Computed example of a mutant assay.
Amino acid sequence: MNIPSNSHPINSAGGPDLSFGNSFPKNGTVIARQFGGLSRVLSDGSTFTVGLGFVANKRHIVVAKHTAAGELDLNFGIWHMDTDELTTLVHLTIQPDGKPLLLAARGNDSAAFIIRFNAQHGDVDRSFGIAGTRDLGKSIYTGLLPRGGLAVQADNKIVSVFHDGAHSYIFQLSASGELINFGNLGPIESPNTLLNTLLITHGGFVIGGTRVGTTNARRAHMRGFLANGQPDSKFGQEGVVELQFSNSENKQISALAKGPDGQIAVVGGSYYLPSEMNFLASVLADGQANPQFNGGNPLESSAGLYAYSNVVSQADGKIVVLSRTQTGNRVVLIRHEMTGQLDLGFGQQGTAVAWQDPQGRPERALIDTLELVQPGEKLQSSGVLSSDRESFMGRLLS
């Protein structure tokens, strides 16, 4: 993979959004000190961050908000709550009413729980679950990224998917945080799969990850469901899609994104490190290969030091991939046309640098989130810097 430098013409696609940042002058980057966490953009361009920090040497979950310009929202403040020393943040999403919803794991057994915060001030929403939290009764495998998915259905019910290293679980909660699990006593279980990403679709939802075969080979695996949790027999082959590659073993799906007409952009690569191959694919709403994208085949590329971690699909059908080094000290965005060809008008020959360690160090970072910011479909990448002590948000023009 040939990665260019981080210099871009001002006000061009792939260049920094100079109206955003928390430095003077603004440079398109926000570094939030004292806590590292997960960020999500709101409809007005502001950003919620739920992170982990220390107060008086005790670990806390920290909730903060930055304005659309990237400055800390002083009217919102910073909310702290005690948490287990072994808490891991897994996935953050924003409900339609603006409330942040967090999937996390705690303790030595990485016990899964969901917690909801109020939109106005970031305090715990005690109307959710039991005093704001719902324990799920299963363990999350907190090793490789991604670790799990969390999303809200059209009727405000909540769906979550994750795995424990051997089997996958799909939970459904009511809008108030009660476990309803599609009318079942427990979650939907999917043995011998490692499913960890979730996309709400027009008719239900799709989950993705990898399937463990009889020879322990891992294959990029998607499953389609109706909104009521029943398998969607019209998706792929009886609800299942397994992408085909030149060598289909040792592959996993890292992220899904909904595009025009229900198309789904799919990214991933090698399951084991170091990564050998990345892929970008496009399937139709029914799970069949999109014939307009790369002739209906996944677009494979040599990974080098990089791995495809996230993806968004723009309104015009262009697909943007977030690709990061193994340590995360360098993150780039790669934009493709609807046909799969590189968009040469973006960044330098289709690639723009979203983050790189300013000292050139192999400093570990977990910048693995990519979102579209309205208006203008600016591209925001975000994640954790400096050993969980800082949060990063960066915006590029699209």
Rank of each mutant, 00 (worst) to 15 (best):
M1I: 12
N2K: 03
S12C: 12
L18G: 02
S19Q: 13
G21V: 04
N22S: 14
N27D: 15
A32G: 07
R40Q: 14
L42Y: 05
T47S: 08
R59L: 14
R59I: 09
T67A: 01
A68P: 12
A68D: 08
L74A: 11
F76N: 06
M81G: 10
M81P: 01
M81Q: 15
T83I: 11
D84C: 09
E85S: 09
T93I: 02
D97N: 15
L102Q: 03
L103G: 03
A105D: 00
G107I: 02
D109T: 14
F113C: 06
H121C: 11
G122W: 05
S127W: 07
G129M: 06
G129T: 12
I130S: 07
A131M: 06
A131K: 13
Y141I: 13
G149S: 00
L150K: 01
D155E: 06
D164K: 01
G165R: 05
H167M: 02
Q172L: 00
Q172E: 13
A175M: 06
A175Q: 09
L179A: 12
N184H: 10
E189W: 05
T193A: 09
L195W: 07
N196D: 15
L199G: 04
I200Q: 03
T201R: 02
H202V: 10
H202F: 05
H202E: 14
F205Q: 10
V206D: 08
G208N: 05
R211H: 08
R223W: 09
F225N: 06
L226T: 04
L226G: 11
N228L: 10
N228I: 11
K234C: 08
E249T: 08
N250D: 15
Q263C: 00
I264T: 02
V267R: 01
V267H: 01
M277C: 08
A285Q: 04
N290V: 04
Q292D: 13
G296R: 09
G296V: 09
L299A: 04
L299H: 07
E300F: 08
S301W: 06
A303N: 05
L305D: 15
A307L: 14
S313I: 05
D316A: 03
V320M: 02
R324D: 04
R330G: 06
V332F: 05
L333E: 01
I334A: 08
I334D: 03
E337P: 01
M338W: 00
G340T: 05
D343M: 07
L344C: 09
T351L: 08
Q356F: 06
P358L: 07
R361T: 10
A365E: 00
I367K: 00
L370R: 05
E371M: 15
Q380S: 08
S381G: 12
S381Y: 00
R389M: 06
M393G: 07
G394T: 10
